[in-house]
Design a protein around this nucleic acid. Sequence first.
RNA 1: GGGUGGUUAGCUCAGUUGGUUUAGAGCGUCUGGUUUACACCCAGAAGGUCACAGGUUCGAUUCCUGUACCACCCACCA
Length: 916
Amino acid sequence: MLPKAYDPKACEDKIYALWEESGAFKADAKSKKEPFVISMPPPNATGQLHLGHAVMLALEDIFIRFARMQGKEALWLPGTDHAAIATESVVIKKIQKEEKIKDPRAHYGREKLVAKIAEFVEQSRSTIRSQVRKMGASCDWSRERYTLDASLNRCVNEVFKRMYADELIYRGQRIVNWDPKMQTTVSDDEIEHIEEKAPFYTFQYGPFQISTARPETKFGDKVVVMHPDDERYKQYKDGDTFECEWINGKIMATVIKDDKAIDPTFGTGCMTITPWHDMTDFDLAERRHLSREQIIGFDGRLLDVAGEFAGMPIEEARPKVVEKLKEKGLLVKVDENYIHRIAVSYRGKGIVEPQIKEQWFIDVNKPVVVWKKKKLSLKEVMQDVIRSKDIQIIPERFEKVYFHWVDNLRDWCISRQIWWGHRIPVYYCLECGEGKSRVGEGIRDSGLGHRGIFVSLQSLKKCPQCGGPVEQDPDTLDTWFSSGLWTWSTLIDPTLAEDTSLSLQDLLKKSPDFQKFHPTAVMETGYDILFFWVARMILMTTYATGQIPFKHVYLHGLVRTRDGKKMSKSDPSTCIDPLAIIPKYGADALRLSMIVGQSPGNDFRLYEEKIGGYRNFINKLWNASRFVLMQCEKAGVDPKGAGKGLGLGDLSVVDRALLSSLQALIADVTEGLQKYRLSEVGERLYSFVWDYFCDWYLEFSKGESNPVVLVHALRTIVHLLHPYCPFVTEELWGQIGPKGCSPLIREPWPVANKKLIDREAEEQLQLLIDVISSIRSLRAEYDVVPEMKIPATVHATRSGPFLSQHQAHVLRLANVSELAVVPKAPAHHHGMVSAFRKGIDVHLSLEGIVDLAQVKVNLEAERTQLTKFLSGVRAKLENEQFMARAKPEVIENEKQKLADAEAKIAKIEERLKALS
RNA sequence: GGGUGGUUAGCUCAGUUGGUUUAGAGCGUCUGGUUUACACCCAGAAGGUCACAGGUUCGAUUCCUGUACCACCCACCA
């Protein structure tokens, strides 16, 4: 016998082990079945699983289990990401804290630090593995991958090499986002803007007044810009020069007229520019070939150009520069309430400083990608696959967001100055010349070995041309470069990848997994990494493989706290840790709480009561099963044997109604899951189990039970629920599955049987339910104490014999002493209270119990409400336009409503007349 | 500055092509219950002019426009 309450702790680990041992997770590349593939978004190998991962795992596990039960070759490929900057920064902080080493990079050097990070990652990966298992994720562990695996590294280098050969990758001096804290570049998308109040200074600059919030960058400003149409400055011409007293003495300044950089309505309408440290100024300087000068060093301190301020950090220098300008009488005014946005690194949270630095870039506008027989740029391919619906985003509105991002995409800076990651596979010959100096504007040689630069898949010891010594590029690749390959680099056969004589195309062709499982079916992830990752996978995969990476993108919302705030680890009072929740409520309850009631793309709030609610549901299912097993035992039926060959002939109406509504359930759940409507399907199942199966069918079973039907129904329910709550359903399947059956995870998905659909039985059962509900309502309304059994009369226009035949149910469930089913309305008498329902009227004799005045009040209230409703329906039917234009079935429906309401109102009036 | 989403019962949220909905669920509230699984339960009930203003339509919570507030995303206003 089952225990009284479901205990997830006692079951979950055992069941997960059973699944793993059964081989159900393992996909077969040789299978003839239709593939269904999900690449698991690899969690960062930086520590702990959080709720974001839990949502992802719950959703994807539902997709994959459903597909597997439907008989598809389901592959869910798990893995982890080395998460370049994120991991390096975590480990550096850890070393600083635990080992009290101020600068771990300097202290350990490249090789040792990388080894330390690798060690940390190894630990963290194994933690994550066990955490993913706790959620019940049915992924194929035999195919687990890591972005730094040898075969994945190979893919990274191959793609780099090809892009370089295609002249998509180039090196250039560009303005980039420099994070002085992490000492690396970060991409545009890794920047957050924070609003900050800062003083806004206006200074006298020769004859002009210019404003700035960054006076400490102004040392090298020798150009003043204004709009060509600005009347205030029409006496100055483009190219005019003037002498000007500035921070460190006199300078010669030049006037530039430009209509792109200047908004004449802002401030004084003119500004000086700092091309080295400002994106707009850089663009202007490019257009006009202006000189540029570095003011702030990569360590965040002012350089020699700052004169007496050299060596100072920004925050220290700023007020001092202002003070000096003020002393010189050049400070015009200060606006203390100015709000400006400062750029902060997404990872390290350090303040980002624009800097000019030589970096590697991917050109997104060069038309070199062959796509659908045309030569397109990377950008155009990214646009095409969504526009042509090759890839569909759910919810659809994110397509707009995607296009906005792609349309404005600039060349992607892929080099990072950190050590943890894929090293750029480029070597410089120290003798051939130019490679060593690494200067020059955008090196774009077509060959792979010109000018002393070599892109190589293997480490180079000497120059292939002159035999001279070489050095490797010290930079590493943006982490999204490698994760952009994730859907297919994980499907490359690792053994084949060792053979360097094979080209990338050969590897793709010869890898059975790639051939069978790519493109993947659905990419499920949070909408917050649509740009970071989803877009980059599209870019990299279409280029490298000629295929789309996935057919659907399903974007889930972010988990928030009860108050709608972001969950943060630093605040444990509001932050829910999945690993603390699972032992308390079970993984199934946690899964349901994150799926039901949510819609894709929208954030949702999660809190313990919600999870508790679904724990109750799981327990309800458990106890329903317990009841079914008890019924079997009582009847001497073996729950593991019963069920095959159900015949309709000798089944009761109640049983036939149940079987019939089960068919509708199967159809709805199947269709809903195919359309990715997980919340709706979850609610449907919840309501079916609780409100129908438990509250009605099992209650009826207490009077008259058919254990074979009970077991059959429960088996179907457990199948349909399995993708949502795999643990409890698998545990129950162990009790009710036929002898010798496979685990539920491998069971075929139920198919609706049209022969079992029986509308008449469903309607009759509904009648029975209506009678019982009506009596219960009346009893409660008129305070009939539970101990008191009373007689009831039902006036049924049809189905009378049916009701008589099943009156035992009514007696028991409505606490009635006897039930009279009559074909004609019974004569009115004092103490009679009634409920008028569709097709039936239910009457109770409560003489001496009920307050007649109260009956009258209630009837009058009901009449008022009905009259109001009736006048609305009448108005509709009297409206010629409505009659002329509405669909016939709508009119018919309204007429029916009218007739029903009229009949009911007539009965109420009759009753009121008798009462007065 | 541009864009997206939200605004539905006290709270958290569903609502799939405009009419079978006199708008639903869970939690909470109120009343009553140890009824042959379940108090992680059962029965009954209260509670909403679907943010506001227009428009389209015979008909709008649902489509369109505008307004307000909230949230988020994007952007080089010095």
